[in-house]
Simulated assay, not measured.
Amino acid sequence: MPDAQVSEALLRARRRLDAALRQSGRRADATRLLAVSKTQPAERLREAYRAGQRDFGENYLQEALDKQAALAELEDIVWHFIGPLQSNKTREVAEHFRWVHSVDRLKIARRLSAQRPAELGPLEICLQVNVSGEASKSGVPPEALEALALEVAGLPNLRLRGLMAIPAPAETLDAQRRPFAQLRECLERLNTAHPERALDTLSMGMSGDLEAAVQEGATWVRLGTAIFGARPPRP
């Protein structure tokens, strides 16, 4: 997709999100759009920024750091790390991102907390839940979620905000909704058991299942191809 078309695709994505929110009877600002920009060149992110987009999600650390350097003058960009996170990458993630959506182990959370620079304030955290039970997918099993959430919520330089999931693809709206409903129910159970935590974030839904995610309460939807077109291969 040429750079000049990114702004048009972003406008279509926003209209689609607005329509999904209206159909679901939710507030117009209940769900925010996270532009998934992995493998996209920095100039496409700049075009989306010119069209008003501020939140960008990256999966690959070095690629993200290169883009952050290239776009350093855009001081109000908010960077979200949304990919699997290894122990040897936590320091740079803690230092260069505001959100991490993909925490699924206490070891990773502890490292992020210890390595977060105090002057940046707490790192916003979502716990990734493996709602589909796929062996190939990252994420804490639902039955282990509460114990992990309690540990992460107690770490000093993190702010536990909510949950994230990447369910297996499904063809029908009803089939798409089921794992999102499961994630919402996980959040509701945590808030019922620990109301002092007041978790408020459900990061779920992508270009192919946005409507299902919004119907089940998504507060972030992660859109890549709907904004940037087909994803180019990694160099």
Rank of each mutant, 00 (worst) to 15 (best):
Q5D: 15
S7E: 13
E8A: 14
R15K: 12
L21V: 09
R22N: 07
S24R: 05
S24E: 04
A28E: 14
L33H: 00
A51V: 03
A51N: 06
D55T: 09
G57V: 13
N59F: 00
Q62K: 12
L65M: 12
A70L: 09
E75A: 10
D76H: 05
D76G: 03
N88E: 06
T90L: 00
R91D: 04
E92T: 05
F97M: 14
W99D: 06
V103T: 13
E119Q: 13
G121L: 09
G121R: 07
I125D: 09
V129Y: 01
A135W: 15
K137D: 08
A147K: 12
L150P: 01
V152S: 05
G154V: 02
G154P: 03
L158M: 04
A165H: 11
I166N: 13
A168E: 13
T172G: 07
L173T: 11
D174L: 10
A175W: 00
Q176C: 11
R177P: 02
E185R: 10
T192D: 09
P195W: 06
E196I: 03
R197W: 15
R197L: 15
T201P: 02
L202A: 02
G205C: 04
L210D: 01
A212I: 01
A218D: 02
A226D: 14
F228T: 02
A230H: 07
